[in-house]
Design a protein around this nucleic acid. Structure first.
Length: 560
RNA sequence: GUCCCUGUAGCUCAGCUGGAUAGAGCAACGGACUUCUAAUCCGUAGGUCGGGGGUUCGAAUCCCUCCGGGGACGCCA
């Protein structure tokens, strides 16, 4: 149920009908009805909806826009739209449509009836996969992972509400070069901690967390691994460490409110031979050539200016090769749409990835990559380096402990993914009182309090069907209803533009409208029928705030 | 050098699939609690939308160019 889209659709079809009627009567000439827009004007004085059809058609019809608007209005079957108040021509040729409040007064009944499901759009029968975070299991989760987590999970929720069938996936990079380095680092630490004089590899992972991991291994095996053949010892340590790291990632993300449907291992792609197979497939199709001992993938995109290696001269496939196999597998699993949330530093991989899936026979727009700008971490004015090697950065689990899940998630998703996020730890900790998330949660808690007060005073909301919502006439009440009516449309647009921050903004605005209402009007102890109507208004406001917060992964407390 | 993101109020940012008089929060100033939570509300002030061209009936939004900030350009992932 999407009231705004529904109303826009009604108006749009009335205008189209009017135009076709006018052409039949010879009042206007054109080939086809253009793609006009029904939009919500910024200015209240310009009506509830406005249409630009007349201006867009002016050139083709060779008529003044206002004259065309005149014809459209005359031809509109106004009586069929019961909510219609009046239609005006304004400015350069806008058709402004004013509705009476009947449609707004229906909103509470709709919302109350569908409750937790308010916000959902019609099912689309489209399977979409969102892959996000996919952090290397060689270290702790950093702020970039955190932002990716908040954005990816929120986006997945939005898509679900927008009518898609959604799966969340984490790609575990448990193969390749970095695992070799990981192994070298672990082994060196193990030998060092068991009293051997070995050098730590120059490019190894020096993080403290790795030392802890090795200590855990020693707890289990003591120094018995020193006696084993090198290869055996290494594999055992790696296996053990990976298991621990993945468990840590899983737990931390769960604490962050994120639960995946699938954890997908890169290693299995290599072991099952799929990586080799996909290279063979591409070779058969003529996309692969050999040069200097390596196999190269021929790029078809004009935007990609050079080809990329899939098989190194040493016979090992590259990360890119595994990624091609991985994406093929995604589509073979039946996803119609695949979304990856990547850091902006990976933007150079987008086109080659699209080239690859196209070479495999899929459409390049079946893959969308949401690039998010990176997070820079500050303590006051000082930039905190985010390096896994030094291990000095703050990890996601520490952040959650410091700020709480709610504030952290809201903060990471509040801004557009396109904008770089400067995260000042000191400020975030100091400002926790002013954090917008509390403003929203406070609105929810206040509404809950109203119902507690009403309950204590023995006030009960009557059967919803007997409530007269037309008593809600105050500007603050109408503004709230209008905003609530927007919710499903806001979700639809957020999904379409992959813009999770829109929901954060939406619920912030909604909370603001509630606070304005609350300060101006009373719910309890007003005239009985108005009290009922306002109780219902409060109920649906609470439902909408709660649903929006749940999309963001933020809790809706009843007390504060 | 090529490519991506970005530049909007003192600060942090919305708005960018073109629409009418560019918004919010913070900070500043002035107000509002004997009644449902003052973690709130109301008001005032604050702008060459980085500069310059262009397309259009109409540009913060699209195109070109220049300037500033961030990032990517590996047989690393």
């Amino acid at each position: 149920m999407n009231p705004i889209q529904h109303t826009k659709g009604l108006i749009s079809s009335k205008i189209t009908e009017a135009l076709e009627l006018a052409r039949k009567e010879g009042l206007i000439k054109y080939n086809s009805v253009p793609d006009f827009v029904i939009e919500v004007p910024r200015e209240k004085g310009h009506g509830d909806f406005a249409c630009n059809a007349a201006m867009i058609m002016a050139r083709e019809a060779k008529m003044a826009p206002r004259q065309i608007a005149e014809i459209i209005i005359k031809g509109m079957d106004i009586n069929e739209l019961e909510q219609l108040e009046k239609v005006e021509i304004a400015g350069p040729g806008f058709i402004n449509i004013f509705l009476n409040n009947k449609w707004l007064h229906k909103i509470p009944f709709i919302v109350e009836q569908i409750g937790d499901s308010f916000g959902y759009n019609e099912a689309r029968g489209c399977k979409v996969q969102v892959e996000f975070v996919s952090a290397n299991p060689t270290g702790n989760l950093h702020m970039g992972n955190a932002r990716g987590g908040a954005i990816g999970d929120t986006l997945a929720n939005i898509l679900k509400y927008a009518g898609y069938e959604v799966e969340r996936e984490f790609y575990i990079n448990d193969a390749g070069n970095q695992i070799e380095i990981f192994g070298d680092s672990l082994e060196a630490r193990y030998l060092q901690l068991t009293g051997h004089d070995v050098e730590f590899p120059e490019n190894g992972y020096a993080g403290q967390d790795l030392i802890q991991t090795v200590k855990n291994i020693i707890k289990q095996y003591g120094d018995t691994l020193c006696e084993l053949p090198k290869e055996k010892r290494r594999n055992l340590i790696i296996e053990h460490a990976l298991e621990e790291k993945v468990a840590y990632i899983k737990k931390t993300l769960l604490d962050f409110g994120i639960e995946y449907d699938v954890w997908y291992s890169e290693k299995t792609l290599h072991e099952s031979g799929v990586v080799q197979q996909v290279i063979d497939t591409l070779q058969e199709k003529g996309y692969i050539y050999e040069q200097e001992g390596a196999l190269w993938f021929k790029t078809s995109s004009s935007e990609e200016d050079k080809d990329n290696v899939v098989m190194r001269a040493n016979g090992l496939p590259t990360y890119f090769a595994a990624d091609i196999a991985y994406h093929q597998d995604k589509f073979q699993r039946g996803f119609d749409w695949v979304i990856n949330v990547w850091g902006a530093d990976h933007h150079g991989h987008v086109n080659r990835m699209k080239d690859a899936i196209e070479a495999l026979g899929y459409k390049r727009d079946m893959l969308d990559v949401l690039l998010m700008q990176l997070v820079r971490l500050y303590r006051g004015k000082d930039l905190v380096r985010m390096s896994k090697r030094t291990g000095t950065t703050i990890a996601l689990d520490e952040l959650i402990e410091e700020l709480g899940k709610d504030a952290a998630r809201f903060f990471f998703v509040m801004r557009s993914p396109d904008s770089q996020l400067d995260f000042d730890l000191r400020l975030a900790a100091e400002q926790s009182q002013d954090n917008p998330v509390y403003y929203i949660q406070y609105a929810h808690a206040r509404i809950c309090s109203i119902f507690r007060q009403a309950g204590a005073a023995g006030i009960k909301m009557p059967a919803v069907s007997s409530i007269d919502t037309s008593l809600l006439k105050e500007p603050e009440e109408l503004a709230l209803l209008r905003k609530i009516a927007d919710f499903p449309e806001e979700i639809r647009v957020s999904a379409q533009t992959l813009a999770p921050h829109r929901i954060a903004r939406y619920v912030l605005d909604l909370a603001g409208l509630f606070h304005s209402f609350y300060n101006r009007h009373r719910v309890i102890n007003v005239e009985a029928e108005l009290q009922d109507a306002r109780l219902l208004l409060m109920k649906v406001t609470r439902i909408t705030i709660k649903n929006a917060l749940s999309i963001l992964g933020v809790s809706a407390p009843e007390y504060m």
